[in-house]
Amino acid sequence: MAMHPKKFGVWLFMVSVVMIFGALTSAYMVRQAEGNWLDFELPTMFWVTTGIILLSSATMHWAYLSVKKNNIETARVAISITAVLGVAFLVGQWMGWTQLVAAGIHLVGRDASAVSGSFLYVISGLHGLHVVSGVIFVLVVLVAIFRFKIHSKNLAQMEMCATYWHFLDGLWLYLFVFLLLYR
């Protein structure tokens, strides 16, 4: 059962993040069950960002494997792509929001059913904030790789970063599917 304490800490942190989003999505369902709910289409951009974040998970894994095999050159490329994709995801989410606004769905609405839009913004926004923290973590690891601080003998930080990144990916998939199913 014992493992690297810091890695274990990352797992516990992810548990608490799951609880935050678990709470928000259950609140969403409770409110929706009360009726008076605005049906919405998810912006097309969200499909694109879903693709982007999935891809970034793949490049993250690529970076991880390269580091493990001490292919530092490849790892540099892979981790850089991951960082770029992370930023691209955030930009894409922003564009998704502008699509929502164009479709007349705002954070604040004058109508009793507008709260569905509020939920949409808060949930995706809070996930975005977590991705910001993930990108920062990726950048830290990126710098460490470029400085040869991370290699096959010193993987802990890389592993924690990869775990967190895949988690953020999985979390978005959950939220995306949830929002698709419970519009």
């Binding site: 609880m19 935050i20 709470a23 609140a27 604040v108 709260v115 808060v122 809070l126």
Partner: peptide, 24 residues
């Protein structure tokens, strides 16, 4: 670890209601 994040969510929505005009 399991319960405080839920308070965070509750407080977050309250903050939105108070400061950004939402109606959660």
């Amino acid at each position: 670890v399991l319960s405080f994040p839920v308070l965070f969510s509750a407080a977050l929505l309250l903050i939105f209601d108070r400061s950004f005009g939402t109606s959660f």
